[in-house]
């Protein structure tokens, strides 16, 4: 079985306070696919992504990454395969310099010191952030922080990239840069987003989550042009399909 495959079967999860977050979630994502998980606030998107990386474990059903079952005994293997980019880069960047932050993961994997620099610089170059290697994370702009947080994950050479709101809080230029970056990767990509235009640009498949259930799963353009489906799930058409706003009488 390919290491790039992700499969959920009848996954359910309820938070300790009794809030049901996922109900009977089933899907299969294959090698090289780019999939957007969309839905209104509280639909369960982030909870689903945390299950794919083994941060949360399903209370019923199974999650598989490649041929590995995501459970407490296989977390190391899962985390070597899945790279998770958090919504807030400040949660991801904790070392005093960008270089040390990107090197953190490879060092934990035991990469020898003589190969480390190349690995770090390659990851930074791939996101266009090699010029900030010696800067402190808090001195970076929002766009740079986002790029570096993606680099910290790329340095681990994961097979699957999972990104939670990759363009949140970015200005239009930096948002465009992130979109360009994500379209260049050949990894299997799974991203949760409210930015439906980004979903259209990056992904060929869309999953809609509504109240913890998958209510639509299919071709990105077909689903994102269907105003009825979107409205039923508390969403709107992507901006590019909304037509000009007419002045009110």
């Amino acid at each position: 079985m390919s290491h790039h495959l992700v499969e959920c079967r009848e996954v359910s999860f309820t938070y300790p306070d009794g809030t049901p977050a996922l109900r009977d979630i089933s899907f299969r994502i294959t090698h090289g696919e780019a999939v957007a998980v969309i839905g209104a606030n509280g639909a369960g998107k982030s909870t689903l992504l945390l299950h794919l990386a083994g941060v949360l474990l399903p209370q019923s059903g199974t999650v598989r990454v490649g041929d590995v079952l995501v459970d407490s005994s296989h977390l190391d293997e899962v985390r070597r395969t899945v790279g998770f980019v958090f919504q807030n880069p400040d949660d991801q960047l904790f070392m005093p310099t960008v270089f040390e932050d990107v090197a953190f993961g490879p060092r934990n994997l035991g990469i020898p010191e003589d190969q480390l620099e190349n690995r770090v610089l390659e990851a930074l170059r791939s996101v266009g952030a090699d010029h900030v290697r010696d800067r402190a994370p808090y001195h970076l702009s929002g766009g740079e922080k986002r790029a570096v947080s993606i680099a910290t994950v790329l340095a681990l050479q994961p097979k699957i990239l999972v990104l939670d709101e990759p363009a949140a809080n970015l200005d239009p230029v930096n948002r465009r840069k992130v979109i360009r970056l994500l379209t260049q990767f050949s990894h299997t990509r799974i991203l949760a987003t409210h930015d439906l235009d980004l979903a259209l640009d990056v992904c060929d498949r869309v999953l809609i989550l509504h109240q913890g259930r998958i209510t639509a799963d299919g071709n990105a353009e077909t689903i994102l042009r269907d105003e009825n489906i979107l409205r039923q799930n508390g969403l709107e058409l992507p901006l590019r399909f909304q037509g000009p706003m007419l002045p009110k009488d």
Binding site: R79, G105, N108, V153
Partner: peptide, 12 residues
């Protein structure tokens, strides 16, 4: 969240 991010990058 930070601990999770660290563990996701191999911190044991």
């Amino acid at each position: 969240r930070i601990t999770t991010a660290m563990r996701m990058r191999g911190f044991t």
